[in-house]
């Protein structure tokens, strides 16, 4: 996918909304699938992973944008990775301090935020070419879009896989959990379902606008 040149467009509504909806990282760009599929067994896990990623995304984009005139282009990727890795380490400590149970549930995927291509993609395509404010807004939009995606997956998988949403039982004690939903294949099924829904919705809109 070729990203449009996003240099210095100033702040438009789309700076923020692009990531939330039109270029949603999960449903439209299908990026960062590793954490998306792996940790979304419950809504809480999805939400936490989304927020952690959003934090790294916004902070590293801010820093990248601040030093964008300083960094020689030969070492820019290395610089971005160092910055991203720093914020991931920060998040890693913060989550451990907040809740060890959550830390165990998310496992290695916190550290793996480093290689989430959404973040490097934003740093390279947007933050490196824009002033701090639009860069942060854009990153925030992407982060929110990613969180929505993870929440949508985690919600469905928790409802079917455990009969709960955010730990609140929905169907009573005799609910039959759909074991497959908390296993890896369930992630693919639910993601496929959401992609289908999004594609169908986009097609319908296109047809309507065409008519």
């Amino acid at each position: 996918m070729s990203l449009p040149n996003q240099a210095d467009q100033g702040i438009t509504f789309d700076t923020f909304m692009e990531g939330v909806w039109r270029q949603n990282p999960v449903f439209v760009m299908v990026l960062g699938m590793c954490p998306t599929l792996a940790v979304t067994v419950s809504a809480v896990n999805g939400l936490s992973m989304g927020v952690a990623t959003m934090f790294v995304l916004v902070s590293s984009c801010l820093l990248v944008s601040l030093i964008r005139h300083l960094v020689p282009k030969e070492v820019r990727i290395a610089t971005y990775i160092v910055i991203i890795a720093t914020f991931v380490t920060l998040v890693d400590y913060l989550i451990q301090a907040a809740s060890l149970a959550l830390y165990e549930a998310l496992g290695a995927f916190i550290q793996l935020i480093v290689v989430n291509c959404i973040i490097l993609g934003r740093a390279e395509a947007h933050a490196a070419k824009n002033p701090p404010l639009p860069a942060m807004l854009n990153a925030l939009g992407m982060g929110i879009g990613f969180t929505i995606g993870l929440l949508a997956l985690g919600g469905v998988r928790e409802i079917l896989g455990a009969g709960q949403l955010f730990g609140v039982s929905l169907f009573g004690a005799s609910f039959q959990p759909w074991v497959v939903m908390v296993l890896p294949p369930g992630g693919f099924f639910v993601l496929g379902g959401w992609l289908l829904l999004f594609a169908w919705w986009a097609r319908r809109k296109e047809v309507r606008h065409g008519a």
């Binding site: 820093l63 020689p72 070492v75 290395a78 610089t79 160092v82 910055i83 720093t86 920060l90």
Partner: peptide
Amino acid sequence: ATMALVASICGVLI
């Protein structure tokens, strides 16, 4: 110099 600068900022943060 740039890498050193970035690295030291990151080091301080961590």
